[in-house]
């Protein structure tokens, strides 16, 4: 009930945004960005809503959503930990960090733990190459990360200390 109301408000906000930028095909990607911001991901209903609002086929909207790695159709966990896999981080051991993190959480990159707490992502360079290897936990950038630091990062996330 409460969630429905939430969703309704979000759809209203999305409507407002579409009106602002214009319901044209050229704004599709921008509108999808906004929708993902609002809903956290792009479920089928949201994609259908966008498709109907812009008058473009659902297949095309879904084709665009699935093409770009920034868009996701699956909800993410409460906390998202992203390991930068840009070359600078890679040559400084980012893959070891990713492997260790996957082992720690018992999930693969792109997956979310069963309890919905953590999602692991890998990123293609956030441009913070000077701090390689870089891990981004809920938006906070951790630089020069070593495998040993991961426990602290996870604890920090769970306790909500930023």
């Amino acid at each position: 009930m409460c969630e429905n109301k939430f969703a309704e408000e979000k759809f209203r906000e999305l409507d407002g945004f579409i009106e602002k930028v214009g319901a044209s095909e050229g704004n599709l990607i921008e509108i999808l960005h906004k929708a993902q911001d609002l809903f956290g991901y792009l479920p089928k209903e949201v994609q259908l809503y966008v498709s109907r609002s812009l008058g473009i086929s659902a297949a095309k909207v879904n084709g665009v959503v699935t093409f770009y790695s920034y868009f996701t159709e699956i909800p993410k966990g409460k906390h998202v930990i992203s390991v930068c896999m840009g070359t600078a981080c890679f040559v400084r051991g980012a893959s070891d960090i990713l492997v260790a993190l996957e082992k720690k959480l018992g999930i693969k990159t792109g997956q979310t733990t069963k309890d919905g707490k953590f999602t692991i992502d890998s990123l293609r360079c956030v441009g913070a190459c000077g701090l390689a290897p870089v891990v981004i936990a809920d938006g906070k950038v951790h630089g020069r990360v070593e495998v040993d630091d991961l426990d602290n990062i996870l604890v920090e996330l769970e306790s909500g200390v930023r």
Partner: peptide, 16 residues
Amino acid sequence: LSGMDRGFETVVGPAF
């Protein structure tokens, strides 16, 4: 029909 996904996983199919 539209292209879905990308790279080796690309398929042509209906939405969702």
